[in-house]
Nucleic acid binder design. Structure first.
Length: 567
RNA sequence: GGACCUAUAGCCUAGAGGUUUAAAAUCGGGCAAUCUGGAUAAGGCAUCAGCCUUCUAAGCUGAGGAUCGGGGGUUCGAAUCCCUCUAGGUCCA
């Protein structure tokens, strides 16, 4: 920030303080009309044995305004600096229009961040919980990338285990060699159907539980028939996931499969046992003692030598480290696994792995339905694909009220709007909170929503499109109304917001920023005209509108939805 | 039984010590004082009242609606920190 340095230089000359100290003291006034930077004189008053008011008064006499800082005021103990607003306007807007899509981005660094999401089970389709996971995961990826990190997207496929065997068993018994193609069903839904069916049937036939367990043993002993069935059904599940990932634009750099590593990690645990990091309990199971940390004792390896979830997670964290040498590994996993990750990270620490403190659990709250908790096995879920289609339908209705479009255009536009609604809804809340999802009310297109952002953007586009005059000379000093000043200020703060969202892993900060910018713009839109103004004002405003449009676009892309030109 | 998380208007969400102040890290006046010393918990949905001959009303303006779950503590000052209780959620055994 050139202007900040200017202010610092002026102050350091007058106060004889070093620049770093001044930088630390410098604040932003609570309101724009009070100036762009404020220097509080309290800390000086102790040294000089004078009142802060007086010090400010004296400093004011010493410091002369210049071209860039064209006004300096004393207000009580504060010295307020005003940046020459026409220069500031020009700088902010030009900067945005020159940098375009890279405005707000930090230079690429070598810092590597690995993000794991959404970690599906291959016995059921992706539901709303996964959708929240995917939206948050992607937003995080985008934000971190924008902050100059090298992002590696990874996934863990939970493709084996008793739950998978349950849907396999139900298919074996009742599937009659049917296929998704024959039933014209999305292939992961087809698999999920049998998982639900198992739950229904087991109510009257409890022995099915034992049969499922037998199937798991057969799978583990690599029984050919079982493996063939497993491969067939997993293929269906993955095919369905792939389609959904495509809709969300998710691409992984590396996918891991539980089936390939569920037994790995044993070695690490055994070594830990030898090194007395872990212990054996009465039953013979290997445990870690985390009583001091408040997490009790946790089994890492069962007495019969079989593994538990955490066994492979220890291995996987290590493997990933050796595969990619990440500086940070972020697990995007629901809050219900908070305890699991606390234990995992503590375990890694006790094993003295260098990457133990590089791991971070990005926890997000559950998505519940008004009818209760989503339960895949009972079929009480809202799945990703149905939800998208439903919202597309709403969007189409709205579009039809105002435009006549071809089928293709209609389809594309409604999908963009629907996706914006979903993504914004799922990223605008602080991620630790649970969400109560009411299908009819939750995702609307009015108020604090994705379409609201898109609408503001479309309005910008519309104004720019309708302008037929060439913009020759621009006098940025014409942007002087309070709303214009507020907008300029918001626009200039965008890069800081991205930085903050990246450092604190809080995508919702971007959402809130976009809302504030859109709200301010909409207010502006109603209060002031652009195209009917005299050229001198019009040109300046057109530039401002272009800048707003650009920032709305950049912010939207961080949350993963598209800014559109017409709605 | 234990651990962790959450609690803000009818509903949803923001607010990570400043409502005296943009300052409690400070100077002065004063024997001293609750002195000098000064106001607002922000949005959205829903409700009600307005605004389309003016760049798309998926928008805008206005009104009403909150002693920030209860109690205690720390502090000059608490929605914010600490303790405790209550309610809800999640997990572990």
């Amino acid at each position: 920030m050139k202007y900040e340095n200017q202010v610092i230089t002026l102050l350091s000359e007058a106060t004889k303080l070093n620049k770093a100290d001044i930088k630390a003291l410098l604040e932003k006034p609570p309101e724009l009309k009070m100036g762009n930077y404020a220097f509080p004189c309290f800390s000086l008053s102790k040294k000089e044995k004078k009142s802060p008011d007086k010090i400010a008064e004296e400093l004011l006499k010493k410091i002369k305004p210049n071209k860039k800082i064209n006004k300096i005021e004393r207000k009580g103990p504060y010295l307020n600096f005003f940046i020459n607003s026409s220069l500031l306007n020009k700088k902010v807007i030009k900067n945005i229009l020159e940098e375009k899509n890279t405005y707000g981005k930090t230079k690429q660094s070598k810092n590597k961040v690995m993000i794991e999401y959404p970690g599906p089970n291959t016995n059921k389709p992706l539901h709303l919980g996964h959708v929240r996971n995917m939206c948050l995961g992607q937003a995080l990826c985008n934000i971190l990338k924008s902050d100059g990190k090298k992002v590696i997207q990874t996934n863990i496929n939970n493709d084996r285990g008793i739950h998978i065997c349950k849907s396999m068993l139900a298919y074996q018994k009742f599937g009659k060699n049917n296929t998704p193609e024959k039933e014209n069903l999305k292939s992961d839904f087809f698999v999920g159907k049998y998982y639900v069916l198992f739950t229904q049937k087991v109510k009257n036939k409890p022995e099915l539980e034992d049969e499922a367990r037998d199937l798991l043993h057969k799978w583990e002993s690599k029984d050919l028939k079982t493996i063939t069935l497993w491969k067939k059904m997993n293929k269906w599940a993955f095919k369905g996931f792939k389609e959904t990932y495509k809709k969300f634009g998710i691409k992984f750099d590396k996918e891991y499969y539980e089936s390939e590593m569920y037994e790995k990690g044993k070695k690490i645990v055994k070594e830990g046992l030898k090194n007395k990091v872990f212990y054996k309990d009465k039953t013979g199971a290997v445990i870690i003692n985390l009583k001091k940390e408040g997490y009790g004792e946790k089994v890492l390896l069962r007495a019969d030598g079989t593994t538990v979830y955490i066994t492979q997670d220890i291995y996987l964290a290590k493997k990933r480290y050796y595969d990619f040498k990440y500086d940070k590994l972020i697990y995007v996993v629901a809050t219900e696994q908070n305890y699991h990750f606390k234990v995992l990270f503590e375990t890694l620490k006790k094993l003295k792995y260098s990457f133990a403190d590089k791991c971070h659990h990005f926890a997000y709250g559950m998505v519940n339905l008004t009818t209760g908790k989503m339960k895949s096995r009972e079929g009480t879920i809202v799945d990703a694909d149905t939800l998208i289609n439903e919202l597309k339908g709403f969007a189409k209705k709205e579009i039809m009220k105002r435009h006549k479009l071809t089928k293709k255009e209609m389809d594309e536009r409604s999908e963009k709007i629907a996706m914006a609604a979903i993504r914004f809804y799922l990223t605008k809340y602080d991620s630790v909170k649970d969400i109560l999802f009411n299908p009819k009310e939750s995702i609307s297109f009015e108020g604090e929503t994705g379409p609201y952002i898109q609408y503001a953007h479309a309005r910008c586009s519309s104004i720019l499109r309708k302008n037929k005059e060439k913009i020759v000379k621009v006098k940025y000093s014409m942007l002087k109304t309070p709303l214009e000043q507020k907008i300029i200020n918001l626009l200039s703060s965008y890069p800081e917001i991205v930085k903050k969202a990246s450092e604190s892993y809080k995508p919702f900060l971007i959402a809130r920023y976009l809302l504030e910018l859109s709200q301010t713009f909409n207010e502006y839109y109603h209060k002031h005209r652009v195209l009917k103004e005299e050229p001198i004002t019009r040109n300046a405003r057109l530039k401002l509108i272009s800048a707003i449009k650009q920032v709305l676009k950049n912010g939207s892309s961080l949350l993963g939805f598209e800014a559109i030109d017409e709605m």
